[in-house]
Nucleic acid binder design. Structure first.
Lengths: 138, 138
DNA sequence: GTTCTTGCAAAATATTTGCAAGACG
DNA sequence: CGTCTTGCAAATATTTTGCAAGAAC
């Protein structure tokens, strides 16, 4: 992917492609796993934590990332899949290991098609399964 | 329910029924909604926040309550249904309104029956749907 | 008396914001 | 210029723990 590709992704979602935003986007793409703010603070050093936070906030509003609450104390961020880029529909369950803290993306399991009363507007879905992962089990 | 009933619920789950624990249990039963620590701190005053926290921690370990992460900044606690008292199976989705902050229990919608690889041990499930509720919508 | 529980106070962890300087156009 | 973005520092919001006193057995 060229620099212009990254810019275009952002522009396509109505986000002005500043240097910081491109760096955050690249870093999120580099990670196959959801990452938290502290992770990004390290890998994106010396970028400022507050700035990273605001970029993530913007990305979340513009729906190019999911915000995942796995019950660890920190929020995790994950890019939406390239094709959909839509928070409410493009989602999969996650498995959080209570022992090692790893977060697994259960990509192969699709979310059920929920029927909520019409008056509810769905913006995002968080389906978190917790327990012990294969590495830690037995 | 008599005082003894509350005691027996706790004893039945291997929890020594101290005064504080009975009070917390009663308060959780009184609430049809999930509540957070700050809520409990008020309704259970003058009980100490740290003590409430430790009771909730114990209840969670013994699986008589669910811990719900709705993306508000605070954890919410909800009693498992009286019949099951088991975290992994006795669960329902929740809807969190991003505008008013209310948390709805979608009791009528059952959780899908997920098939995880056997090596994963499921301890609890958090299914959170977020968006705008009927009160705030339109 | 030994162990468990509680209250108080403070630590720890994350998230979020205020503000002034700088970049952009 | 005027607006948007960034870095730095600090405020917030919760959760979590240390410790000594008290209760339970």
């Amino acid at each position: 992917m060229t620099h212009t590709d990254f810019e275009n992704i952002l522009i396509g979602k109505g986000i002005k492609p500043t240097a910081n935003r491109i760096l955050v986007l690249k870093e999120l793409m580099r990670n196959s796993h959801p990452v938290n703010l502290a992770d990004l603070e390290i890998t994106l050093a010396p970028m400022d934590k507050g700035s990273i936070f605001r970029v993530l906030q913007l990305f979340s509003e513009k729906e190019i990332i999911h915000v995942i609450e796995d019950g660890s104390r920190s929020l995790k961020y994950e890019l939406c899949t390239a094709e959909h880029h839509h928070t409410a529909t493009d989602q999969h369950p996650h498995f959080f290991c209570e022992k090692c803290g790893d977060l697994y993306c259960l990509d192969s399991i699709s979310l059920p098609d929920l029927k909520l009363p019409e008056a509810f507007t769905v913006k995002s879905i968080n389906f978190m399964i917790k327990g012990i992962c294969p590495k830690c089990g037995n």
